[in-house]
Nucleic acid binder design. Structure first.
Length: 105
DNA sequence: CAACTGACGATAG
DNA sequence: CCTATCGCCAGTT
């Protein structure tokens, strides 16, 4: 038991299907804190290897990858493209088509 | 145990 | 479009 927020966020992230992406704010809001995007970042960096989270499916609210080129940016992009996610000329994802909308009761 | 750290978001200018 | 600021708080040092 870490925290309710962490568990929910982790649960949500583990549920993201291939070919879809999620935003930090969305996960934070679903986990109970609409302003907890930074906590989501912390959780990802701390639990992605322990919980086997698909960190590459998490992007910022604009649908762009937050990492800088050379710092994993191209790697994440390639992973997403391999799952069917498309990037436009501005290297951003069309959230209208690829944003995953989880079903939380 | 106190301070620091963040792959962000929304708002204001 | 851009930069600046505040908010939020678990995990790490």
């Amino acid at each position: 038991m870490v925290s309710v927020f962490s568990q929910k966020a982790i649960n949500i992230m583990k549920s993201i299907p291939a070919g879809k992406v999620c935003t930090y704010g969305q996960i934070a809001a679903l986990a109970g804190n609409h302003r907890g995007a930074r906590q989501v970042v912390r959780l990802l960096n701390s639990f992605w290897e322990k919980e086997n989270l698909p960190w590459h499916r998490i992007v910022n609210s604009k649908g762009t990858i937050s990492l800088r080129a050379g710092d994993g940016y191209e790697y994440q992009k390639s992973l997403l493209e391999a799952e069917g996610v498309e990037f436009d000329a501005q290297d951003k994802i069309d959230l209208g088509r690829f944003l995953w909308k989880p079903v939380i009761p």
